[in-house]
Each structure stands twice: as structure tokens, then as C-alpha cells.
Simulated scan of single mutants.
Amino acid sequence: MKKPVTISVITATYNAAEALPGLIDSLRAQTDKEFQWVVIDGASTDDTLAFISAATDLNIQWISELDFGIYDALNKAIRQTNSSYYLVLGADDRLKSDAIQLYKEAAHKTDADVITAKIQVNNRLIEHRSGPTWLYGAFNLVSSHAVGAIFKTALHEQFGYYSRKFPITADQLFIKRLVVGGASIYKASFVAGTFGHEGLSNSDLVGTLSETFRVQLETEKIKWLQVALYIVRLIRHYRRL
């Protein structure tokens, strides 16, 4: 008999008081309320901690202390959970009310290392892209690291934790390492929720493009092709740089 699937939602926050209430409301609205919420706060100075400490109706565990960025906080959260899977949510992300339930059902059915689902971004429906990883990178494998995928917690024992060398794209590096290492991915058809746009990857385009290039350079065999693609992307986004 399979063990019950357990999920921890993990969130890194810093001065997120404006966005956090919407996330909390979406967690409270879940049809399956059997999940843990682990929040690692980077010593916020606004009302973030007031919202977190007031969410006593949720199975919440949290700490607030200085950290080295999002992935350092996520690594702390992963080490504090005993759940079989975890789901990353930013303060500005929102879950559909049946997301936890559907993720659990897919995990129970498939026992896949990673379950990826569709997400909404600016009223557009996004799923994993079809195509080679040399072109799309991690987005050929999952729709999104946050909201759009759950990961077996035990994967970090084999593949390590999120790298602090990549403050913006450590998730892309981790996902690509999983696939190279033979981890299984199940691509579900349901919509998990809405991905927010207030994160670092959207506010620092130059940093995101540069780190994505470094990840691709580290994980793909044809290096010159990644250099060419990086130049093309810089030209494409020139007016936004």
C-alpha cells in the first residue's frame, strides 16, 4: 500500500505585507486543508510578520531572520519539512481552491519525482513548452518552479539544495540537474493557480538573462549555441534593458 502523499507549501518572504493577504486567502480556500505552510522571512520591517503570525488557522511554521536571498530561505524551509512533496509559492502567487487536492491525487497516482501543472500568467494559460532543453531550458520540463510544480523533498538528498551561486535562477539549475539525473516528471492537465509578477526574475531582466545563460552553459553540451542564443536574447530585449 502506498504511503499517503503529504505536501508542504514553502514561501520565502521579505517586506511582503501588501501581497501576502491574497496568498493566505488562497491557502485558506483549499478544499484539501491537510498541508503544512512553512514560511521563512528575511527579517521584514513592514507588517509581514503580523499577517504570518495571525494565520493560526493554518498549519503554519515560520521563522524570521536574516538570510542570503530567496533560495537560501527555500533551502531552510525544505530542511524544516517532513512532507513527501513541497510546493513553492511566492507572496504574490495564488492557488486555485483545488490545487493541493489535485497535486496530491496526481502524486498518489504516478509517484513521480516532479508533478507539473498549468498556471495562469496575466490571463494567459502557461504549460511546459514542447521543444529541446537547449532552447527552452527548464521551461521545457515544468511550467514554472513556483505554483506550477511539486517536488519530492527527498530529491535534495540526491541532487543537493538550491545553489547560492545563482540568486535568480537556482531553480532552473536544480530542475535541469534532476532530469539529467533521471528524475521522473508527470505533466498534469489541471491549472494550479496564478503566478505573480513581483518576483526578482521579473524585476531584474539583465540578471535573469545572464543567470539563465550561465545555467544553460553549465548544463548543455553545445556551448557556442548557448552563447549565440544569449546574444539573440539580449538584442530581443534591448529596449527593456
Rank of each mutant, 00 (worst) to 15 (best):
T219Y: 07
R164L: 14
E34A: 14
R79T: 11
Q30R: 08
D46Q: 07
F151T: 01
S64F: 00
E18Q: 15
R28A: 02
E65W: 01
H197L: 15
A188I: 03
K104F: 01
D98Q: 07
D171K: 09
L23H: 02
R79F: 01
Q120H: 08
V38N: 03
I60L: 07
V88H: 14
I185K: 04
Q216K: 09
S26L: 03
V38C: 03
E211N: 02
S130G: 10
S44M: 01
K118A: 15
S84M: 10
K2I: 06
L23W: 00
A170W: 09
R240S: 11
R28C: 00
Q172Y: 12
D98P: 05
R177T: 07
S203Q: 15
I100R: 03
R124S: 13
L217G: 02
D113Y: 02
E157S: 11
A107V: 01
Y85W: 05
S163D: 11
A99S: 14
P21F: 04
S210H: 13
H108E: 15
Q158S: 13
S189G: 11
L102T: 12
W62N: 02
L49G: 01
P167Q: 08
L23V: 02
H145T: 10
A154G: 01
L241H: 12
R239A: 14
V121I: 12
E198D: 15
L58A: 05
S163C: 06
R129I: 14
I235D: 04
M1P: 13
S83K: 08
I126E: 11
Q172C: 13
G137L: 07
L27D: 02
V206E: 13
T208E: 09
K221W: 06
L125E: 09
T212Q: 12
I119W: 08
L27H: 02
T110Y: 01
S184E: 12
S64Y: 00
K3W: 05
K152A: 07
S8N: 02
A107D: 05
I150V: 08
R233I: 07
R129W: 11
I222Y: 13
Q30V: 01
N140D: 11
L234E: 02
A12K: 00
L20D: 03
S163E: 03
Q30D: 03
A228Y: 11
R240H: 12
A228R: 13
K76A: 07
